[in-house]
């Protein structure tokens, strides 16, 4: 019972850590290029993107958590660190195929067509890979891994909401021509990141 309680506490504390102190966009800068391209792409739906990112983050974190120790039984045991990215990409591929297969059966064709643009970019990006590498490097337990993965995706979604809201304010002709687009968006994000940084003052854990 106490181990269950400990696991739940670990889950929540690592979720909060991932949302705030180690926010995936504002502190760790992961998934930013992809996120900005997603905002500017009318085919991609932010809600679907964030939902699928959460799903893939959880699935891939679990897959890598269970499969990474098996590398020790292969000829690549000495090179685990160098082979881990390959394992992560393979897990992302497998989870993508599974999710697409399930959705193609369970969901209407028109909805599936709208979803597929977001699924592809949400299934493999630096936010997912970076978070998984972080959790594997730190040697987190299962509950901590799930909590951190969940918190990362929630933190990503909250950060994207703030950035999208900011895009409404900064997309106008009064912004100097040279600052329009990427420059002013990055300056906007830097201010938000500075505010989030002040919450804990933690440096990013590489």
């Amino acid at each position: 019972m106490s181990s269950m309680v400990n696991a739940i506490i670990s889950f929540f504390s690592y979720s909060v850590l991932a949302i705030g102190a180690q926010n995936v966009i504002f502190i760790r800068g992961l998934g930013l290029s992809g996120g900005l391209r997603m905002i500017n792409d009318p085919k991609k739906d932010t809600m679907y993107f964030c939902a699928f990112l959460t799903l893939f983050q959880m699935i891939n974190s679990l897959l890598v958590y269970f499969l990474r120790p098996l590398i020790g039984f292969t000829p690549f045991a000495r090179y685990t660190r160098f082979v881990t990215p390959v394992l992560i990409v393979v897990c992302c591929t497998v989870s993508y195929i599974l999710v697409v297969f399930v959705l193609s059966i369970a969901v209407q064709k028109s909805t599936f067509k709208r979803m597929i643009y977001s699924i592809t970019s949400a299934s493999i990006n630096s936010a997912i890979v970076g978070t998984i590498i972080f959790t594997t490097t730190l040697g987190l337990t299962l509950a901590e891994t799930i909590g951190f993965a969940f918190g990362s995706s929630v933190g990503y979604m909250l950060a994207m909401l703030l950035i999208i809201e900011g895009e409404r304010k900064i997309r106008h002709d009064l912004v100097p021509a040279n600052f329009r687009g990427l420059p002013i968006t990055l300056i906007y994000i830097s201010v938000l990141a500075m505010a989030v940084y002040a919450l804990t003052g933690h440096r990013v854990a590489l």
Partner: peptide, 18 residues
């Protein structure tokens, strides 16, 4: 820090656009 990086990259992007 990362937010300093965003700020400097943003300013460099503006200079590049110029």
């Amino acid at each position: 820090y990362s937010f300093g990086g965003f700020l400097i990259i943003g300013v460099m992007c503006a200079l590049w656009n110029m």
